Simulated scan of single mutants.
Amino acid sequence: MAVLPIRITGDPVLHERAAEVTVVDDELRRLVADMFETMDEAPGVGLAAPQVGVPLRLFVYGWTDDDVLHRGVAVNPVLWLSPLTVGEPDEENESEGCLSFPGERFPLRRADRAILQATDLDGREFEIRAEGWLARIFQHEYDHLDGVLYVDRLDHPYGKAALKTQRKNGWGVPGLSWLPGRDHLED
């Protein structure tokens, strides 16, 4: 297993719809193992294949809620969402970050509930009904598979602040990445 470089906003693979997984083989299993190691080292609670430069529809997640570990891989997922609550997002309870927009957090309104349908690495179909933070993780990672970063969804003034942060850091161009476990960004 290996820790993989994480692409930063502006890399084309992050802004395009990922392709369906058609073959689950040892190479894909190795990618998933590397993604788990990368997510854990970052540390993060989810990581989509496009974030490590692989344009495939799969993501890994790992989060503990009330001493219950939610950890797995979703291959070719479909996501069903409850309606959004109207109003401004709560800065304390609805802020999220992204490993492809490292070190920043902004509030974003997400659906309170989600149903994730996908297959695992053995081709078995599964369904998870999620609420709260786990539902947020699924929505965030699923967005990556459609070429959407959470900062793309931010309303004013948070979207403006994210754009300012992007410019200040020199992001928004192809080829930038960072390697978890290091203090600097790579290009």
Rank of each mutant, 00 (worst) to 15 (best):
M1W: 12
M1V: 14
I8Y: 00
G10D: 03
G10S: 03
D11Q: 05
D11E: 05
D11P: 01
P12A: 09
L14S: 02
L14E: 03
H15M: 06
E16F: 10
R17N: 12
R17V: 15
A18G: 02
A33Y: 01
A33K: 12
D34L: 11
E37C: 06
A42Q: 06
P43K: 07
G46S: 04
A49E: 01
P50Y: 00
F59V: 00
V60P: 02
Y61W: 08
T64D: 11
D66S: 12
L69V: 14
N76E: 03
P77R: 10
P77L: 11
L84E: 00
D90I: 08
E92P: 03
N93V: 11
S95N: 09
F101E: 01
P102M: 04
P102R: 06
L108R: 05
L108K: 00
A111I: 03
A114V: 09
L116F: 03
Q117F: 12
A118P: 03
D120W: 02
G123I: 06
G123A: 09
F126S: 11
F126R: 11
R129S: 15
A130R: 05
W133C: 13
Q139W: 06
H144F: 09
V148E: 09
L149R: 10
L149H: 09
L154Q: 06
H156T: 15
H156V: 14
P157S: 08
R167V: 13
S177W: 13
S177H: 13
L179D: 00
